[in-house]
Design a protein around this nucleic acid. Structure first.
Length: 788
DNA sequence: CACGCTCTGCCTGCG
DNA sequence: GCAGAGCGTG
């Protein structure tokens, strides 16, 4: 037996070495990494290095297992070994890996670690960072993915046990809507009584709560509306089954059902995954919580990380109670709070803290920083939304002029997508390069969904929802009446609509449209045949050609040009997919498309101001952040203002927005604003009032007359007053006139050549071909061009 | 069956 | 203020 004093020195040296390895992290972060057994809740405030902790912890588990906490002392330990270890303490952290690996104990194989994320983007980021620390080989074995992709993988293997037939398709929210519309029609329910949106939400909430049709029916009780919703839910599930389809919620709750009811399957996965990690835990719903509990049911090594203060998705079913009550749901939970912020200045954090402190339902946290106070948060009142937009554009031009800051330093974060309109036009006029992260995602575009629907049909002709979507797109003379007849026969005979169409001539009811139906059937047959022997891009091209979809868009001329481009873009994604997957199949492509619906829009390298909703900004950070529309009725939204829990969610949203800013935050509000076509006069947001004044700087406002003056006269009109000049004065030389062919320089676009010059209402519109950023149009007053 | 007119309702949105 | 859906007519 070794000398106890020597053993103690060994343990001390070992732990000191680990601390040294992670010396760039703070104490709480290190604690999170070392704590690998049992339930762990990490409350990670905004900007507290959440991802770093997550990645390091997984890496640590795989490399060293329980090495840090272990009390084990090697039998053969000698004075000399301990001395070597103690000496190693002076090594740089990077040089310690070799020594530390000798301490490894119960290191976990990578394939036994499961990490859940919410978005594909987060999953990819995690995989990338794990590759960087662990090496590609091990990182690839770690199962990191979205809830949906992980569950789908399980369902593809075991789905038959919960009533899914192999090759089932996935319906997105739009397909779901279409199917629900059919259900309402079949049940003779007026959409005015029970809107599609309402049932869609009801069904989705029900599934997130793991309520079956029977449960829901029972809960409806005497409530007529709920009873109707229950009927629709029942019909909807029946039809999903007929179409061999699942919706997004089914992917989760069918997996839960599978694990709950099939001991063998449950046991397999429980033993397979030794460690379960969940990112953004505040966004999980009840079904996901149950899933996590089931999967971690054997080893109980479940770690969740998140920030209750950033829970902003209650409206889509997330239950903040999951993170608030984690320690009650999992016995012997260890909780760690990460409160040191590495992102923002003191004033910005002060503002964030004072707003969020008003919420009642939260874990108490207070962000702090070692950085200085920085600049105060600027609050600026403007007269109208257009002036607000111009103010922002002007401030950005000023702050970026002469390359002081790249445009990518600036972000404009707003509550609603509609707010981007005014901003965009102001930015265009100022010649500011900008990017809008819009609400409609690539795969949500109508033209893309149409082409995909054709492809789904080739892959699975039983898919009635997709069939109905494209059967008359472009027009083929197959209207609703004929379609209804087809559907009725299909229902009566218990076959798919496509099967009825294949034999259309057999049915008297269809005699009139039979030739049209036959044309469509021939199209799908011929494409299906093609799909077996040509490449995916080739198949896509043939699909849009033969279906007449391409011709239809071309006939649309200028108006449809974007759509045409998007369709071409889809073909490019097929090319890419084939390059990445040697065994590319149509079914595989469609599956990926169903779950990967965001082509990551945000490119942080592009030199452009970025604008987006606060929701989409979660997880991002920017040196300078503008928050326009800080008005009661807009933010917080008028629907939330008389509901305490909704107000708390809006407040968390404000907290998310504020904590995106690293150095400078500017909040603006407009006295009058166009909402739904009419003018509203909104008071400044109550959230501004909740910020302690010592963190604020209120910009003084020009008088009403002066402002109106500026607004009513268009930029550069002959009647410009001194004041207007003062507000929007060009920062470079006074307006100079250029002609075609002149070489000019723009503050943010660099050098270029003037292509055209056009007089426009006293101002001049230049079209300039820049050497590096392409051709742009801009008004002289705002472009501030200089001679090269 | 297709087109055009009127009516409604509208925040945020991952898979 | 605008888009999508419902409805009536050619």
């Amino acid at each position: 037996m070794a000398d106890p004093a020597l053993g103690a020195r060994f343990l001390k040296a070992k732990r000191a070495l680990f601390d040294k390895k992670y010396s760039r992290l703070n104490k709480e972060q290190r604690e999170a990494i070392y704590c690998i057994h049992g339930p762990l809740l990490i409350l990670a405030g905004a900007g507290s290095g959440k991802t770093t902790v997550l990645v390091h912890r997984v890496t640590h588990i795989v490399r060293y297992g329980n090495a840090y906490a272990s009390e084990r002392i090697p039998e053969d330990i000698t004075e000399q070994t301990v001395e070597t270890l103690e000496k190693a303490l002076s090594f740089p952290p990077e040089a310690l890996d070799g020594i530390l690996s000798a301490f490894a104990e119960d290191a976990c194989p990578p394939w036994a670690v499961l990490c859940f994320t919410f978005t594909n983007k987060a999953a990819n980021e995690m995989k990338e960072r794990l590759s960087a620390t662990l090496g590609e080989q091990s990182a690839d074995d770690i199962h990191a993915g979205t809830f949906h992709s992980v569950c789908l993988r399980i369902l593809r293997r075991e789905g038959e046990r919960v009533g899914l037939r192999s090759g089932f398709t996935i319906y997105d929210t739009d397909d779901t809507k279409r199917l629900l519309r059919d259900c309402l029609a079949a049940l003779n329910i007026d959409e005015k009584l029970l809107s599609i949106k309402t049932v869609q939400n009801a069904v989705s909430r029900a599934k997130e709560q793991l309520l079956t049709v029977e449960d829901y029916d029972a809960e409806a009780g005497g409530d007529y509306k709920l009873q109707m919703a229950a009927k629709v839910y029942r019909e909807y599930q029946k039809r999903l089954l007929e179409n061999n389809a699942v919706d997004f919620d089914d992917i989760i709750c069918k997996t839960v059902e599978l694990l709950q009811n099939h001991e063998q399957v449950r046991s397999y996965y429980q033993h397979r995954y030794k460690y379960v990690c969940v990112d953004e835990y505040q966004d999980t719903n009840h079904a996901q919580f149950v899933l996590i509990s089931l999967l971690s049911g054997h080893y109980h090594n479940v770690m969740v990380i998140g920030d209750d203060d950033q829970s902003i998705y209650a409206f889509r079913g997330a239950t903040i109670e999951n993170i608030l009550g984690f320690d009650r749901m999992f016995r012997d939970t260890h909780t760690i709070k990460l409160e040191q912020n590495y992102r923002s200045t003191g004033n910005i954090l002060g503002a964030a803290n004072s707003v969020i402190a008003r919420n009642v339902g939260r874990h108490r946290k207070r962000l702090w920083t070692e950085q200085g106070d920085g600049e105060k948060v600027l609050v600026k009142k403007l007269e109208t939304q257009n002036l607000e937009a111009r103010y922002i554009a002007d401030e950005i031009l000023r702050a970026s002029a002469g390359g002081k800051r790249p445009l990518s330093d600036f972000a404009v974060l707003y509550r609603t997508n509609a707010q981007s309109q005014a901003l965009e036009s102001a930015f265009t006029r100022s010649g500011l390069a900008y990017r809008v992260l819009s609400g409609t995602r690539f795969y949500d575009r109508k033209e893309i969904k149409d082409v995909i629907a054709y492809l789904c049909l080739i892959n699975n002709p039983a898919d009635n929802v997709r069939l109905k979507r494209v059967v008359n797109e472009p027009k083929r003379g197959i209207g609703n009446t004929s379609l209804a007849a087809v559907e009725q026969i299909a229902q009566a005979e218990g076959v798919s609509m496509f099967a009825v169409m294949e034999n259309a001539s057999k049915y008297i009811a269809l005699s009139r449209v039979a030739p049209n139906l036959a044309g469509f059937v021939t199209l799908i047959h011929s494409l299906a045949k093609l799909s077996t022997n040509v490449s995916l891009p080739e198949l896509f091209r043939e699909t849009i050609e033969q279906s007449g979809y391409h011709a239809m868009l071309e006939a649309g001329g200028e108006a449809e040009r974007d759509r045409l481009e998007n369709v071409d873009e889809l073909i490019s994604t097929a090319v890419e997919y084939e390059q990445n997957n040697p065994e590319a199949t149509l079914a595989g492509f469609l599956e990926e498309v169903a779950l990967v619906s965001d082509v990551d829009q945000y490119d942080r390298d592009a030199d452009a101001v970025v604008m987006m909703t606060i929701h989409s900004a979660k997880g991002l950070e920017f040196p300078v952040v503008f928050m326009p529309g800080m008005e009661d009725g807009l933010f917080p939204g008028h629907r939330s203002m008389n509901d305490a829990s909704e107000m708390e969610e809006e407040r968390r949203l404000a907290y998310v927005a504020i904590t995106r800013a690293k150095q400078k935050l500017i909040m603006t509000h407009a006295r009058e604003r166009l909402m739904f076509g009419s003018t509203s006069y909104n008071p400044p947001s109550c959230f501004i009032g909740e910020i302690d004044e010592r963190y604020l700087e209120r910009a003084e406002e020009p008088t009403a007359r002066q402002r109106t003056d500026f607004y009513t006269r268009s930029a550069g009109s002959t009647g410009r007053t001194e004041l207007q000049r003062d507000v929007f004065r060009p920062r470079t030389a006074p307006k100079e006139l250029f002609s075609i062919g002149d070489r000019v320089v723009h503050a943010s676009f660099g050098a270029g050549t003037v292509l055209s010059v056009k007089d426009m209402g006293g101002d001049t519109l230049y079209e300039v071909a820049f050497d590096t950023v392409g051709t742009k149009k801009m008004m002289a007053t705002y472009a501030r061009l200089r001679k090269e």
